[in-house]
Amino acid sequence: MSLPRHLQSSQSDSGDYWPGFVDALATLLLVIVFLLAVFTAGQFALSQALTGRDEQLAQLNSRLASLAEELNIAQSENEQLSLRVSVLNQENGALQETNAGLSSQIAGLQDGLAAARASLAEEEALNEEAQATVALLNNQMAALREELARLNETLNASEAREAELEAEVVNLGRRLNAALASEVARLARYRSEFFGRLIEVLGDRSGVRVVGDRFVFETDVLFASGSAELSEEGRRSLAPIAGAIIQLTGEIPDDLDWVLRVDGHTDRVPLGPNAPFESNWELSTARSLSVITYFESQGVPPRRLLAAGFGQHYPIAEGRTQEAYARNRRIELKLTSR
């Protein structure tokens, strides 16, 4: 009985597929090599086109990248070392538990061996079975002692490595703290210059003073009672500060991440039923946002501004007098890191 023609043809041609497959692979390899050559030429042309970039921009980017990379590496190494210390602590605990278990087994075997020896000593002669039992116990005890010695060596090595890792963690922490302290010191220098400029600009203007590391405006100078809308006098008072902030923005290096925090505070007197705000929280926050909105309208970069409202909960003057209330109704400006 003969097979159909298409079956006969498929059986006769089954050995001819491999050369075609090899040719297809060779063609694909040539295409890939060509594409790699085109990609390499494109990369070379692109690198040549980018070599003319501004040198100062490259230096600033290099400094920023170096500092960011060093901090990221330090933090990454710190996390990895902490994880490794945790793993070693777990392994150390497991080895100690195993050590305790083996010590307990050795003690049990020693008790069994002592009992077997005492029983055999009472007999006149040891039979072969008793001798085999003693030999087996001796072999098991020797094996357990060797295992115990190996585990003790592993435990000592683990403890030594743990001490080294802890020292590395402490060293990395010191390096990271030193880097952060350097950034804080740089920011403190600019903060001092900024406050010096504000003091020169505002002079002895009433309702404005420096308290610690903050520049304080009494809100009676900036806002009407119960309102969060800046008055004309308030705008005039804030205008030179906006100019000083813009000038400071151009002087502080880009790799120093800073913000000007605007804190709103009120007195402890509750708002009336007809007030536009439900609480002193909302009033203090709205006033802070009004100052930030004004600074932004004067050209201060929004990313360098931060608003916060504290209500009546952080007074700087005690008592229930009108003078104390006026001092507690304030806007504070603080130059700080983000």
Rank of each mutant, 00 (worst) to 15 (best):
M1C: 02
S2H: 07
P4A: 04
H6R: 04
L7G: 00
S10W: 02
Q11F: 14
S12C: 07
S14F: 13
S14W: 14
F21T: 07
L30G: 04
I32V: 15
I32K: 11
V33I: 08
Q43V: 10
Q43P: 03
L46A: 15
S47A: 11
Q48E: 09
R53M: 08
L57R: 10
S62R: 15
R63Y: 09
R63N: 10
L64C: 03
N72F: 13
A74P: 01
A74D: 13
V85G: 00
V85A: 11
V85F: 07
L88N: 12
N89Q: 07
Q90R: 10
E91T: 08
N92R: 12
A94Q: 11
T98G: 08
N99K: 07
G101T: 11
G101Y: 12
S104G: 06
I106G: 01
A107S: 13
A107D: 15
D111Y: 07
A116R: 06
R117F: 11
A118L: 14
A121V: 09
A121Q: 12
E122R: 11
E122K: 11
A125H: 12
A125E: 15
A125L: 14
Q131L: 12
A132C: 02
N138E: 08
N139L: 14
Q140T: 02
R145Y: 09
E147G: 05
L148S: 07
A149G: 02
N152S: 12
L155W: 03
A157C: 00
S158T: 12
A163E: 13
E166H: 06
L172Y: 02
G173W: 03
N177F: 09
L180Y: 10
A181L: 07
A181M: 10
S182Y: 05
R186G: 00
R189N: 04
F195C: 11
G196Q: 12
I199R: 07
V201Q: 15
L202Q: 02
G203A: 09
D204R: 01
S206Y: 00
V210G: 05
V211N: 14
V211M: 10
G212F: 10
D213R: 02
T219A: 03
G226A: 10
G226C: 06
A228W: 04
A228F: 06
R235F: 04
R236S: 13
I241D: 00
A242D: 10
Q247L: 09
T249Q: 05
G250E: 05
D254M: 11
D254Q: 14
D255I: 00
D255W: 02
W258E: 09
V259S: 02
T266H: 01
R268F: 05
N274F: 03
F277N: 10
E278L: 04
N280T: 08
E282H: 00
L283D: 01
Y294F: 13
G299A: 02
V300K: 03
P302E: 09
P302G: 01
R303Q: 14
L305Q: 06
A307H: 09
G309M: 04
G309N: 02
G309V: 00
G311H: 01
Q312P: 10
Y314K: 06
I316C: 03
I316L: 09
A317H: 07
E318D: 02
T321P: 04
E323M: 05
A324I: 01
N328V: 00
S337L: 14
